[in-house]
Design a protein around this nucleic acid. Structure first.
Lengths: 157, 157
DNA sequence: TTAAAAGTATACCTTGTAAGTTTACTTTAA
DNA sequence: TTAAAGTAAACTTACAAGGTATACTTTTAA
């Protein structure tokens, strides 16, 4: 019941990018050093994030990576999905054949786990990288936003 | 981000015992056949449950296993803890040294994951085996219980 | 026009854990 | 005193996690 190390690295890499001035491009090298992630391993993870459309990559001299959209529009769930694929807290939630009781209608364990998983997914979705970065480095002026909360951060929306 | 197969087997084994008349002792053999769990592997799991005080084991001829307390007092969390040990959805929640930012005060990812984990644990705690068994085979008379819900089953208490 | 700095693609390696099995032993009822 | 149960712990096998290496492509700038 644990996240991959790669997912953890991905969280930290995206958070790092989210804390830069918007649009800033940095090389993998810099992220790796700053976050203490093995360089070649990080490159592999960054490719997953690129494929998922979470970051852009720029090749060639002066290349690097930048967020593909505003931090507020990237959730922990997005990053998880990009790195680990779909969340499945139990074998039987992935592959119905793996359920001895052949799925939810007859399997109370299955039903309970499905509900727990649903809540878990919602939780991961409720954190975005604007909130994690703790106020953007270039704060959006309050007037441009609706009154009240700008974005959710954790459980309560 | 997945439960062990052993934990899943444990859920099913305990549920099976919970569905028997209270106090009934059955051999591992029977549980294994009924739930489609490899016999010797199940024995290993049952020993963990015994050590955790969730089931009793009876040795010798005519021996077997039975629940050590009423199903309503056994939660999914109890069984998980017995089989997998403490829930830690990220390395850094187990071992602070694994957090490059040295723990929650300076690490927003850490803080978010800790909160998600807390909710997850509460979820697993909110399911007991009376509710999973779907009404005990020998139903407790309504008069002995307070009005309203007898026990929680899932999210809402 | 080519060298160097970046990312890409893919194959590989190494270690740990999951999942299950085996062997030898102990307890207990009949 | 034997056979049916559980106990204990070592062993095996397979797969996945985590990380590395090799060869390649793209791009900029001298």
């Amino acid at each position: 019941m644990r996240l991959n190390q790669a997912t953890d690295y991905a969280f930290r890499a995206v958070l790092y990018l989210a804390q830069l001035p918007p649009g800033e491009v940095v090389e993998a090298q810099v992220i790796a050093r700053h976050e203490g992630i093995p360089m070649r391993f990080l490159l592999k993870i960054l490719r997953l994030l690129t494929k998922a459309g979470i970051i852009y990559s720029y090749r060639g001299v002066g290349g690097g990576y930048a967020l593909a959209r505003p931090p507020v529009e990237i959730t922990l769930l997005d990053v998880m999905l990009a790195v680990e694929g779909p969340v499945q807290i139990n074998r039987c939630l992935k592959d119905l054949g793996a359920c001895t009781k052949k799925g939810p209608p007859h399997c109370p364990v299955h039903r309970a786990l499905a509900s727990i998983q649903k809540t878990l997914i919602e939780q991961f979705k409720s954190y975005n990288f604007a909130c994690l970065a703790g106020g953007s480095p270039e704060p959006v002026p309050e007037v441009t936003k609706p009154a009240g909360k700008r974005f959710s951060c954790g459980g309560a929306n």
